[in-house]
Computed example of a mutant assay.
Amino acid sequence: MNYHFDFSFLAGSASALLGGLKVTIELAVAANIMGLVLGFFLCLLVMSRWTIVRWPAQLFVEFFRCTPALLQIVWFFYCIPMMVDIFIDPIVMGVLALGLNLTAFNAEAYRAGVQAVPKEHLDASVALGLRPWQRTVYVVLPQALRSAMPVLMTNGIGSLQQSALVAIVAVADLMYVGKSLATEAYRPLETYSVIALIYFALSLPVAKLVNVVARRQDTAVQR
């Protein structure tokens, strides 16, 4: 292999990369907040005893879990503006597409956590006279969140990585900026290697934290 690596051209592009990194982090953080909040409410709808509530929620979950994330992003960016006939900021569309996708996956994580809540705890909350919303907020949510935390954090890492897909619809995230630099400098090997290392550096601490949380949960269960 006679290829000579040259990363010097990236020194003058640091501000562009930082700008793209800022957009990527904004997308990932906003999508995770959306997924964490809406995911729990969607979980409650999926577990509802009312068929008219449960079926649409299940259809929502299955749609986002069984279609490619790239297709979802393209559909949101090109189809929704055509349907409502208004311009929507690309960042908002990116958050919406990524957040709804994450909502569907988090709903399943929450559902497993809710099903793990001991029936005795629910019976005790009823005996104490707690209202349904109080049982949900003070009894079910804390325990479901604790049980589902490793999966929710793993889904969050996946959302960060999936945010790179918005580059295909020209959102100036880290991947889009990297692709532009690689094209301009004819240095794809160096550029994409640096981009990969940045994503790796963002994801690794969270992945390590997931392992710590999972080990603590295993230890707590064994006691």
Rank of each mutant, 00 (worst) to 15 (best):
N2T: 12
Y3W: 10
Y3K: 08
S8L: 09
L10K: 02
A11L: 06
A14N: 01
A14V: 05
A14E: 05
S15L: 13
G19I: 01
K22H: 03
T24I: 08
I25G: 01
V29T: 11
V29G: 01
V29P: 02
A30F: 09
N32W: 09
M34P: 01
F40R: 02
F40S: 02
L45V: 11
V46W: 00
R49C: 08
T51V: 12
I52S: 11
V53N: 12
W55F: 13
W55D: 13
P56R: 15
E62W: 10
P68W: 13
P68T: 15
Q72V: 14
Q72N: 13
Q72M: 13
W75M: 15
F76R: 13
C79A: 15
P81D: 10
P81G: 13
M82V: 14
M82H: 14
V84T: 14
V84P: 08
D85H: 15
I86R: 15
I86G: 12
I91K: 06
M93V: 13
M93W: 12
G99Y: 07
G99D: 03
N101L: 14
L102P: 03
T103G: 06
A104V: 13
F105P: 00
R111Y: 08
R111L: 14
A112H: 12
V114P: 05
V114C: 09
V117H: 04
E120G: 15
E120A: 15
E120V: 15
L122P: 05
D123N: 14
D123W: 09
S125M: 00
L128R: 04
L130Q: 06
L130T: 11
R135T: 14
T136N: 08
V137T: 09
V139Y: 06
L141H: 03
L141C: 07
L141I: 06
V151H: 04
V151E: 09
M153F: 11
T154R: 08
T154I: 08
I157G: 02
S159H: 05
L160G: 00
Q162H: 08
S163H: 02
A164G: 04
L165P: 00
L165W: 00
V166R: 00
I168M: 11
I168D: 06
V169D: 05
A170E: 01
A170G: 03
V171L: 06
V171K: 01
A172V: 04
L174P: 02
S180W: 03
S180R: 06
S180F: 03
L181I: 05
A185I: 03
R187S: 09
R187C: 12
P188G: 04
P188S: 02
L189I: 13
E190Q: 10
Y192P: 05
Y192Q: 06
A196Q: 08
L197I: 14
I198E: 04
Y199G: 01
F200V: 12
A201M: 09
V206R: 09
V206F: 09
A207R: 10
L209P: 00
V210A: 01
A214H: 10
R216W: 09
Q217Y: 07
Q217F: 11
A220I: 08
V221L: 14
